[in-house]
Design a binder for these strands. Structure first.
Lengths: 133, 133
DNA sequence: CATGATACACACTTCAGGGTAAGTACTTGT
DNA sequence: ACAAGTACTTACCCTGAAGTGTGTATCATG
């Protein structure tokens, strides 16, 4: 994890939001481009490191590991390493990780209904992502 | 809204995550330090611009406006301006914005139970926020 | 003997979100 | 005449999350 500067308003704001806002608390844990995707793949069952890599081709190894370590430190996933050569490491969701299922589900439901109701807005958003026309 | 570079892997990843992952879709809309807090305040009723400023003292005017504009563009809030002097502008949640209530609630429930079950992890996290001992 | 597979580690760079600070327009009150 | 309130706008800077690329240990297999 990257070092954090002590004197920084942005960190102070993060702190207060973290303390006061449970939504921010959740987003600190499942936020970022990759964490939700990793969690999604683990929700369908435990996976090896290399299986995750194959399941998410676009992710770099650095990002994958970094987020797995963070998820582990946050108590959402468990790392199980078998002491064999070549290494054999699997990642599992913990109880807390599994408890995220309804949360992620609620988000997904909203996303689907929102992208239907506001298809125009959706289209505008898509345009703002380069490579789309 | 800030300009976005066309040639950027990070944007490309955002795009694919946005397309494939409904959770990312939601977080694009309610993510950031301030959006959940603004939404929270609007959930308890429509508010004037100046009321929001008073309710969230730490936020700067730039951030407040910027996020309100984004929320408006995303169809989550509605801006109602009365053509009087001095100006009188109120912000309301739209149908889609109100529909976020169960989502935010699910997140809050998880946050509370998680911070209870894993008080040690919580403590570690707090330490990582400067200003805490 | 060297190539491949596995699960990482580390140094370096980029960029978009967030912060700071100052200014605008228009009118009412003193 | 000038300060105060309201709802913004704009220019500039800084930081930290994310991406790029290369290196490591260990053993089996051809």
């Amino acid at each position: 994890m990257t070092k954090i500067k002590e004197t920084s308003t942005i960190q102070a704001n993060k702190q207060s939001a973290f303390n006061e806002c449970p939504v921010t608390y959740v987003m600190e844990k499942i936020g970022g481009y990759w964490k939700p995707i990793i969690l999604f793949h683990l929700l369908s069952g435990s996976k090896r490191y290399s299986d995750l890599r194959k399941a998410i081709p676009a992710i770099t190894e650095k990002m994958l590991i970094q987020h797995l370590k963070q998820l582990e430190a946050d108590g959402l996933v468990m790392r199980v390493a078998r002491p064999v050569i070549p290494p054999h490491v699997t990642y599992h969701l913990t109880k807390a990780g599994l408890a995220l299922k309804p949360v992620l589900y609620a988000m997904a439901v909203w996303a689907v209904s929102d992208s239907k109701e506001n298809s125009k807005v959706f289209a505008r958003n898509l345009k703002s992502f380069p490579g789309f026309k």
